[in-house]
Structure formats: structure tokens, C-alpha cells
Amino acid sequence: MPKQVNHDERRRQIGDAVCRLIANRGLDAVSLRHVAAEAEVSMGRVQHYFASKDELLMFAFELISDRVAGRLGAVRSDDPAAHLRAILLELLPLSAEARAEAPVLAAFLAHAVVEPRLGEPLRSGSGEMVAWLAGMITAAGGSADAEQDAMALLAFVDGLMLQVLIGQVSAEVAVDLVDHQLSRVLTCG
């Protein structure tokens, strides 16, 4: 009987290799040869699953986005303020998983500035995230303009993520800054 091949798993294996390359060496390191070597597969196998470098990058972006969404979905709290805080902290490179993902996300964010196709999923998902955070801000007794506060908090956390990644801000200071900013948002209600 022929061996059953799990094509989704093989695509994920290659996508994981792309993410590791980006995390360790940046987007410029993503080439067919480097991806194949990182995934420990042939260049032909990479080409079999991905027709172009753009397709490979889009798949890796979706993969990393799904991981972040999974981590955010696992955050639980009955207290809306505590839940909001936990979500914002989960977006920062504080845990081992987030530290592994953050350089990849930062590289994709930078690349999205010049690549409209990559920017589209970021723009389309942003409204949903803002609405979700705005709902939590409202539930926690935050300001009357919860949507604007949600947008500001997301922008703040994105910038803070970069500062933590480059060592400009320590993880401890990042947590303090999130608490400070969140208290401002929640006490303006």
C-alpha cells in the first residue's frame, strides 16, 4: 500500500522553516535554497507546494497569524479589565512563544509597507480586533470612545513590541507601560 502523505503537514513544515528563517535572519534570507535547507527537504518539494516566493511568504504569514490568534483565543478571564490586560500583554514578546513569533510579525509588518498584498490581511483583520478590544474596554467601564482607545492601544502595543525586540525597553518596563496606559483608558470612563 502506498505511503499516505499529509500535504497540509508538509506545507506547515515548510512554512515553519520560513518563519524560523525570518526570525533568525530576516526576510532577505528567504530563498528557495535556504527554505529547503531549513525544512530539510529538497528544493523540488518546496516548489511542489509553493509556486512562488510570494505564495510561500503569504502562507508563512497566515501560519504565524493563526498562532497569534490561537494564543489570544486561549486567554481567559471573567474580569473584562484583566482580560484586556492579558490580551495586550500576549501581543508583546514576553512568553517564549511570543518571543519566537514577534520578529516574524515585525518583519511582515515592515514588508507590508511596500507589499500591498501582504498589507491587505493586516488591514482587514484590524477592524475586527479593534471592535473586539473596544467591547472589552466598554465592558471594563472604559471611556465613551472605546473604539479610538482600542486603536490607540493596538498602535501602542505594536510600537512597544518593536522596542522590546530591539532591547530598548525591558519586558518588566513593557508590562508597567501597558498597565499605565490601560489605567488611563479605563479611568476615563
Rank of each mutant, 00 (worst) to 15 (best):
A102L: 09
C19M: 15
V46E: 00
L72P: 04
A81N: 11
L88K: 04
V169W: 09
F61A: 13
N6V: 03
L177K: 04
A174V: 10
V178D: 01
V46I: 09
V75G: 03
Q47G: 04
Q47M: 11
Q163G: 00
L91Q: 15
G167N: 05
L63V: 02
D54Y: 03
S52P: 08
L122C: 01
V68A: 04
E97I: 05
S42N: 11
S77V: 05
A146L: 01
L57Q: 05
Q4S: 02
Y49S: 10
S42W: 14
K53L: 12
V5D: 05
A152H: 00
S95M: 09
G70W: 14
R12A: 13
S65E: 10
A29N: 00
A155W: 03
D176M: 03
E97D: 15
Q181N: 09
L56V: 07
P80L: 10
V164F: 14
I22M: 09
R184S: 10
L84I: 03
P2K: 08
G70P: 07
L133W: 04
A37R: 12
L160E: 06
L91C: 07
R12W: 04
V30M: 10
A174F: 07
V113W: 06
M129T: 09
L92S: 08
A150W: 13
P121Q: 03
V130E: 04
L57V: 08
P2Q: 12
A96G: 11
L27M: 15
F156M: 05
A39L: 12
